[in-house]
Design a protein around this nucleic acid. Structure first.
Length: 155
DNA sequence: GCCAACGTTGGC
DNA sequence: GCCAACGTTGGC
């Protein structure tokens, strides 16, 4: 079982949006970066746990927990000319982009802001801190425990 | 809204 | 295959 951090702009898709989906489950589609794609296609598995991170807002933060419920499969929004994520180079026969399905678990008792993450020496190796724009990131068990502790959620 | 980081594209 | 131009992300 692995840990991940998934980024989303809340104006586009928020943690509450996930909660309000049927079965609180949603496709994590629209990822168009090869490194993130590789994680989704090859490493993200059902049962894995996810830190849901809100980006591109005044106070970016980890706001909740989600669980992976379906492993990587072709992102069908890439096949749809009407989708804003349409990619003519991807096809059903040779898909380029992948998505997983995730389910709402619970909100953080206390959101863990980027500011707090950046000032914690034990989290300095997180891709988030190294200013990577990667939207799907691995999280180590140690980092996971620290983030949950900072959220007031002892494991 | 600005801009640095960085990934992608395309001419050569 | 190099690298400049360009586009996107995302913190501030």
């Amino acid at each position: 079982m692995s840990y991940w951090l998934f980024k989303s702009e809340p104006g586009c898709f928020s943690f509450d949006d996930l909660k309000n989906r049927p079965d609180s489950t949603e496709h994590w589609d629209g990822v168009r970066n090869y490194q993130a794609r590789n994680f989704l296609r090859d490493q993200v598995k059902p049962g894995d746990l996810v830190l849901f991170y809100h980006s591109n807002i005044p106070e970016p933060a980890v706001v909740g927990l989600a669980e992976v419920v379906r492993e990587g499969y072709p992102d069908f929004t890439a096949f749809d000319p009407h989708s804003e994520h349409f990619d003519p180079k991807s096809s059903v026969a040779a898909p380029i982009w992948y998505m997983v399905d995730v389910r709402y678990v619970e909100p953080m008792k206390k959101p863990v802001t980027l500011e707090r993450i950046k000032t914690n020496p034990l989290l300095s190796e997180m891709p988030l801190v190294k200013r990577s724009r990667l939207s799907i990131q691995p999280v180590t068990p140690e980092q996971w425990q620290m983030i949950l502790a900072m959220a007031g959620m002892e494991t």
